[in-house]
Design a protein around this nucleic acid. Structure first.
Lengths: 128, 128
DNA sequence: TTGGGTGCAAATCTTTTGCAGGTGT
DNA sequence: ACACCTGCAAAAGATTTGCACCCAA
């Protein structure tokens, strides 16, 4: 197991993600990091995003259509993607455990995790 | 709106997907189509997979880690991915509608669809 | 005949990786 | 010092697209 060493880039990436609720892509993180560290490389951003998500300090959200997105919230929660504007929003959901049990009833393996994705129109797109 | 014309390649791709329950990737479809049409191109496979999924004759499953997968079943159902061997299986789930309603209770937009992904160990991996 | 479909290849987009030099501990 | 981390650039993987030709309607 690799020993983790401090890096100001990694710290900034994590801080940045915690200020955002729109689940930015790696490229958006990169663009914002360039403001602070003009020489930062995209490779470093990817390496740190992947590291942070491995140790559970951020969450990686795969495939909402295009590039992966990253979420500073680590508590389990669901996501909603708007079919109108493509935005991704957090969604509260009390009992995922309940859903897992329902699914397990029809299944022969062992289910340990569930990630639900909802889609439809967001508040803004509804108005149009 | 484009007029749809018959193509034997598209027909074969759809037939192939209906015989499989393992949710093949575009590349797997391509490899299997080459047996029938040695000159078929990967571009054609992608174009047809995307077309078929647009008109709802197949289902595109994004984000199971690597490449997208395709499913010949079009009725709404959930999927399970094994963290051991990476296989993707279908999962019966009676009341997705129920889940959607629960989610909608906390949400200001309009939720029309839900796709739940479960993970854990499949029957085979449990035995090991 | 006409517009969609195809094969081929090049291009795009996203993400990963090898390497040499930099930096935290 | 040692191992991790970084910037840079090239590579890799998945998917899309431009183009000229082919074929179904």
């Amino acid at each position: 197991m690799a020993a983790l060493k401090y890096s100001r880039q990694r710290e900034s990436i994590k801080e940045f993600l915690m200020t955002r609720t729109d689940h930015p892509t790696a490229d958006t993180v990169y663009e914002n990091m360039k403001i602070i560290y003009p020489n930062i490389s995209l490779g470093t951003v990817y390496r740190n995003l992947s590291l942070l998500s491995d140790i559970g300090e951020i969450q990686k959200l795969s495939s909402f259509g295009g590039a992966d997105r990253f979420d500073g919230r680590t508590e389990p929660h669901c996501h909603f993607i708007c079919t109108g504007c493509g935005c991704v929003q957090d969604l509260e959901m009390d009992d995922l455990q309940d859903i897992i049990q329902k699914a397990a009833a029809h299944f022969s393996g062992e289910i340990t995790d569930c990630s639900a994705r909802f889609s439809g129109l967001c508040e803004n797109c509804l108005k149009k």
